[in-house]
Write a protein that binds this DNA or RNA. Structure first.
Lengths: 161, 161
DNA sequence: CACAATCGACAACCCCATTGTCTATTAAGG
DNA sequence: CCTTAATAGACAATGGGGTTGTCGATTGTG
């Protein structure tokens, strides 16, 4: 393909920083899930990872809904799916008879551990190519620029609107 | 909150690189859309930006669907929405009577230009805080690590599964 | 000991994306 | 040419996933 007569307006220099961050993120996540798929977790999606992070050490369906930015009913549906695949379980809350605590099963913890390991491996691979110094500089810089922002888990709603 | 007796398994060092990239991306995108909202484009969502990128200099609904990783019907719906808000228009394809070309209106180009400008400004702000050298190093590193990946626009389907 | 608030479950609804089908148009091959 | 396959976009029917609304049970508050 050649040059088009009617070209789009050129983006100014430096406006592709968000895209670069997104591409980097996607590259890592894709590699992580490729590894997970090989390890028998083919159905595990990036969104599940976020849900796992939101679950943390255990939450109620209502709280999970709040963290994910969806209704508690929607969170319940998500949980059902993860429960069916054996990643999470619901146990009675000893301190509140209304609540059921959602927490990772050993299989869930296993996926998470594997994911963490792959991420660390990928980080090492990046460091290998970029040099440990540059790698650390990137991390430090990103930490600095995002220090005032809290980690939010409502990715789909946030992005899709 | 204190230390919980049952703590979650600790993520290994270096496994938070994806999260850092995501946080950085989100920080930038949030700031961009905050500015756009003030400029009268409150309904403009991150997903719309991706759609704009996928539209490029003009595409058919079918092609847009392929780029976004959704059916042409779904792409058509998205287009209707953007059309209603005056961001895109459909014009007949002079070379193919079946096709209608979707392209940005002047209003659409305006939002895009503004978004580009805000992104460049934010990049400058980052450079101010990190130093131009570090900023450039990050960009260069990300470019290097994502050079072999093509830019894909199927974000929602990719992430949500 | 009332009373408001919250938890999870159930039901009804809605939006959006999907598949399937249709006509019009284009491209390819004999 | 003329037939046949492929593609564009419109329309219809379906389904998944989200939403609101309601309910009984339980908790916390004054």
């Amino acid at each position: 393909m050649g040059l088009s007569i009617v070209s789009s307006t050129l983006p100014p220099r430096g406006s592709d920083l968000p895209l670069l961050l997104l591409l980097g993120f996607r590259a890592l996540i894709d590699d992580v899930h490729a590894e997970l798929a090989e390890a028998g977790h083919a159905g595990f999606r990036p969104l599940h990872g976020v849900t796992f992070k939101a679950i943390g050490d255990g939450v109620t369906a209502s709280e999970l809904g709040r963290r994910l930015g969806v209704s508690k009913q929607a969170a319940g549906k998500t949980i059902e799916g993860l429960e069916r695949e054996g990643y999470v379980e619901r146990v009675a809350d000893p301190e509140d008879a209304r609540s059921k605590i959602i927490r990772l099963t050993s299989r869930g913890v296993d996926v998470q551990q594997q994911a963490f390991k792959v991420m660390a491996d990928l980080r090492a691979r990046w460091a290998e190519r970029l040099g440990e110094e540059r790698m650390a500089a990137i991390e430090e810089a990103l930490r600095e620029m995002t220090a005032d922002r809290e980690t939010r888990f409502d990715i789909p709603g946030w992005f899709n609107g």
